Amino acid sequence: MSNIRGRFAPTPSGMMHLGNAWAALLAWLQIRKQNGQFVLRMEDIDGPRCRPELAEQALADLRWLGLDWDEGPDVGGPYAPYTQSERIHLYGAAMEKLLQSGQLYPCYCSRAELHAIASAPHGLSAEGPAYPDTCRLLTAEERQERQVHKDPSLRFRTDEERPILFNDGIAGIQHFPPGAGGDFVVRRADGIVSYQLAVVVDDAAMGITDVLRGGDLLDSTPRQLMLYDALGLQAPRFAHIPLLLGEDGKRLAKRHGDTSLAGLKAAGVRSEQIIGWLAYLAGQLERFEPVAASELIHCFDLTRIPTESITIHDTLMKRLFN
């Protein structure tokens, strides 16, 4: 059996849509082509935004597309549980390790103060403006004084001397300057653990070797690589696929029509139409034609996937719907 392990990790805060299907299909094909193990993980760590019924719907939608998984919330596996809300103790242990090594510090900045930073130049485009180290430089006395008025978040102290360099499987060589994006939050003031920390802990614990995900997360990779290094964990290989955009240049969403998988199914669209359409966009088919996901495994080629965002014109959408 191959030691290649990949995953798809949806957040059950909304209905699965074409953008989710795009990432899920390509991540699945990458691993199945290499006879690897494919893991499904539910990233529901932000409890107020996530709903159990949406998690169930996501499983149903993926099965309708013809995708399967070797480990997951419904089938179990050696690294269970596969739902983030049941893995909180693992994130706590990681934060304790980072605290002991001096990598974390409390941040007392209010939302208003952080909003004011928004006018500053962005360090990482998808991650917002770089944090200006306001609380990094506080003395013990100043921290104690602020603690009286506000519960702090916890920020990771980035390395300000070493640049981040990695080879992305689709985007190519990526170079980020030292401290890219500034110090970042790993636990919010309300106690919710950040995506950055949770995804690193989970991917490492589950032995994930290959992560294929949307290009909007490319800028998150430097921060995650810093966490892998600080925790002494092995980082996976990364490949970031281009985003699907509407004609207005914005990410494909409800404003471009009902792009939810459940909605398309209800409208009579067959899953093979969606798979064939996405495979065509990904350069895996020379022309658009209905096809089952399993039929694409033998010919899948990561190098054929475009590197630039893909604009979905209305005429192309109509080819899917008709």
Results as ranks from 00 to 15, higher is better:
T315V: 08
I275A: 06
F238E: 07
V39F: 15
D203L: 01
D202I: 01
K254E: 05
I164W: 05
Y82P: 05
E113S: 06
L40A: 07
D219L: 08
R87K: 10
R136S: 03
A292W: 04
E43V: 01
A292Y: 12
G179T: 08
A112E: 14
L138I: 02
L302G: 05
E247I: 02
G232R: 03
Y131G: 01
A120G: 10
E127A: 14
A282I: 04
C50T: 12
E71F: 10
Q284S: 14
W69N: 11
Q224N: 07
D210S: 01
A198F: 01
C50M: 07
E142S: 02
L225C: 08
E127V: 11
L137E: 07
S119Q: 15
A112R: 15
R136Q: 09
M95K: 10
S220H: 08
E160G: 11
I275E: 09
L165F: 10
R237T: 13
W64M: 02
K250P: 05
V269T: 11
A94H: 04
R188F: 11
L285G: 07
S101K: 14
Q196T: 01
A126I: 00
Q57L: 13
L18G: 13
R162G: 00
S13D: 11
L59G: 08
G14V: 01
H240Y: 09
P290S: 04
A140P: 14
G77T: 02
A94C: 02
P152F: 12
G72S: 13
V185G: 05
D314Q: 14
W277A: 07
L138T: 03
I164N: 01
T259C: 12
D216W: 06
G215M: 01
D202N: 00
Q84T: 05
Y79G: 04
L281I: 05
L218A: 07
R41Q: 04
D248H: 10
R237M: 04
V193I: 12
D74G: 07
L104P: 09
V200F: 01
A235I: 00
E247C: 07
R287S: 15
I170G: 10
N20W: 11
L90T: 02
G268R: 08
L40G: 02
P306M: 12
P106F: 06
G257V: 06
I208A: 02
I117R: 09
S260W: 06
A292S: 13
P121H: 10
K265H: 14
I275S: 09
L99I: 03
P81L: 09
L227Y: 03
G249W: 02
T259H: 10
A60P: 02
G214S: 12
F8P: 01
G66N: 09
R51Q: 14
L218T: 04
D203Y: 00
D229N: 10
D151H: 15
I173V: 03
F8Y: 15
I4Q: 09
E286A: 15
Q100I: 04
A267I: 00
I241M: 05
L165A: 06
R32N: 04
T221L: 06
F238D: 03
A58K: 10
C50P: 04
L67Y: 15
L54Q: 15
L217N: 04
L65A: 08
P10L: 06
A266Y: 02
